[in-house]
Design a protein around this nucleic acid. Structure first.
Lengths: 144, 144
DNA sequence: CATCAGACCGAACATAGTTCGGCAAAACTT
DNA sequence: AAGTTTTGCCGAACTATGTTCGGTCTGATG
């Protein structure tokens, strides 16, 4: 994981569709060597997969909210329960007063309410505190 | 934006590296027609870009925290101020007691503290409340 | 000093991306 | 309802890229 690897990851985050030749030129390598570097980055798990970035509003997920989930039990094994709710995009165990923080995307606030209802149905969940996002400044890749 | 488009976006989210031929077979189209569909999805902005999913811990961002930022002024024009802090991965204006919610990734809690210091330096910021993530259950693409 | 392992280059070969003419179905027009 | 236009698709040609491989160099190891 040297400077060249970091440069490769950075450029792939910006555009994973470019050719190995272009990528190689940018970092000072041949296409073949670049290919080999990227292959190893995938093998090591640094690069998990290549994906596309989708406009949420265009696919019926125009409402974004973060929900603090309070509980009266240990939630460490409840990952699957949260994963079963498709509108939940992220779920984290957190330090602090609540015990789980989830990121939810829905088409409407009515559907958001329905997600909250399903959250309450999870074992150990004693309360929720939803924060609705009014405007997103930006969402961007990791710094390098 | 019909069922085929949704199927294409779904499959591209899972693996943007597969061939148009494979993608076409999966949805019942030829490679050429698939190519044209995906081109239009990009043109319309439904697909914003193709990127790679990187393991944060592998690139020196093992600490994740969400920070509620309180303010005593209108923050609607301060997007650039938040964008100037590279460790901030997302920044949103929110409804509720705080006015901005940011997602921060750093290598250490010391660096997290330094980010908080830089947040305080932004015009109008009157306080912060950081929530450190202990474990991430999952982070996944949008539902379709 | 000799040997070994790792990384790179450049060229060959295989595969996929991209374009295009022709066709058919659907959507307007009159 | 018939004509006309538009849209979307197929399949094949053409172009570009991915992928592999032998040979070379460099730095590390013993």
């Amino acid at each position: 994981m040297d400077d060249i690897d970091r440069a490769l990851v950075l450029r792939l985050q910006q555009d994973a569709g470019q050719s190995y030749a272009a990528l190689g030129t940018a970092v000072g390598l041949s296409a073949g060597a670049t290919h080999e570097r990227v292959r190893k980055l995938r093998e090591r798990g640094v690069i998990r997969r290549t994906t596309v970035d989708v406009d949420p509003a265009a696919v019926g997920s125009g409402v974004l909210a973060y929900v603090m989930v309070d509980s009266n039990a240990w939630m460490g094994e409840s990952g699957d329960d949260f994963a079963a709710i498709p509108e939940i995009q992220e779920a984290h165990i957190i330090a602090g007063s609540a015990s789980v923080l989830v990121k939810v995307r829905t088409a409407s606030t009515e559907q958001l309410q329905d997600v909250l209802r399903r959250l309450y149905a999870i074992d150990g969940v004693s309360g929720t505190h939803a924060t609705v996002v009014l405007e997103t400044f930006f969402e961007r890749p990791l710094p390098l």
